[in-house]
């Protein structure tokens, strides 16, 4: 006779196996496009468009790499992308946390109106603002510099909203009062108390900002004016010819540009999950 415990154990095992199987199938759908980019990056253009499509790595990396460097200052473009994304991330985290903290914990005249006004800007399609934005950048003489690609978005509506929502529920007002009684200045409270406690939300904001900046195509396209100042997406797009497209070089460049994003996901996934859990637990308590 099989005991109830064994049956229960067996059913848990079966359901776990089933769950893993489903997860495995679903994850294949998500992982495959990334895998395929790396497969194509390793193949020469002539061996790329085959039937059936290639599933395994080829031996064209060296040739694709040479072609990539012949056509683009690729590592310079990577440096530009990294520099802009890092600056955008650091400044966005700093200013959005500061603004979010003010909206969450301070009382001042017109606070609700100002917050709602900031939120309302989320409803305006970005594309509508591109011409005034471009005109302003020309007027400021910021064309072909990094500044337009991170300064205007340093304090953005999404970041302020995210930080405000998180800080409102996760930092007790008593803790801030205690710090004030101990003689801590407001800016020091922000640096010493708010930033460490807001780490999960900062991770989410940081990652979304970094990825957004890394993938920002149109902004970089209209602002940056030569190959040496291009970011990676704009640089790679310049390789798309009509008569002669070097897909090998483009795919290798795409694969290399994916690596920083994949690394960020791998290293910061814990922080993202922690942030999501913190949100769900807060609701449960």
């Amino acid at each position: 006779m099989i005991s109830d415990k064994k049956i229960q154990h067996l059913s848990i095992k079966i359901s776990t196996t089933f769950l893993f199987l489903i997860l495995l199938i679903v994850s294949i759908f998500f992982v495959y496009p990334f895998y395929y980019v790396f497969v194509l990056a390793s193949r020469e253009r002539a061996n790329m468009f085959t039937v059936p499509p290639p599933f395994w790595f080829g031996n064209g990396i060296r040739q694709n790499y040479t072609s990539l460097l012949q056509n683009l200052p690729f590592w310079r473009n990577m440096f530009n992308s990294t520099g802009i994304a890092v600056l955008a991330t650091v400044t966005t985290i700093f200013f959005c946390t500061m603004a979010g903290f003010a909206f969450a914990k301070y009382k001042f005249k017109g606070k609700d109106f100002l917050f709602n006004f900031i939120l309302a800007t989320l409803a305006i399609p970005q594309l509508l603002g591109i011409i005034p934005f471009f005109k302003m950048m020309v007027w400021l003489n910021w064309i072909n510099t990094w500044l337009p690609l991170f300064v205007p978005t340093m304090a953005n509506a999404f970041g302020i909203f995210l930080m405000r929502q998180y800080l409102e529920g996760s930092i007790p007002i008593d803790l801030l009062d205690a710090a004030r009684i101990d003689g801590m200045k407001e800016f020091k409270i922000l640096l010493r108390i708010v930033f460490p406690l807001a780490r999960p939300a900062i991770a989410v904001l940081g990652i979304s900002t970094f990825i957004g900046s890394w993938n920002n195509f149109f902004g970089a396209l209209v602002i940056l004016r030569d190959k040496n100042s291009y970011t990676v997406p704009v640089a790679l797009s310049s390789l798309l010819g009509v008569h002669n497209v070097d897909f090998g070089a483009i795919m290798l460049g795409t694969a290399l540009a994916l690596i920083p994003l994949l690394l960020i996901f791998i290293f910061f996934s814990k922080q993202i999950i922690a942030s999501l859990l913190a949100g769900s637990l807060k609701g449960a308590i």
Binding site: V138, F218, L221, V222, V234, S237, L240
Partner: peptide
Amino acid sequence: NDFAAHHDRLTTAIAA
């Protein structure tokens, strides 16, 4: 730039 991107950039610059 690539085909579409070039014309998008030019349209923006002309409009501005």
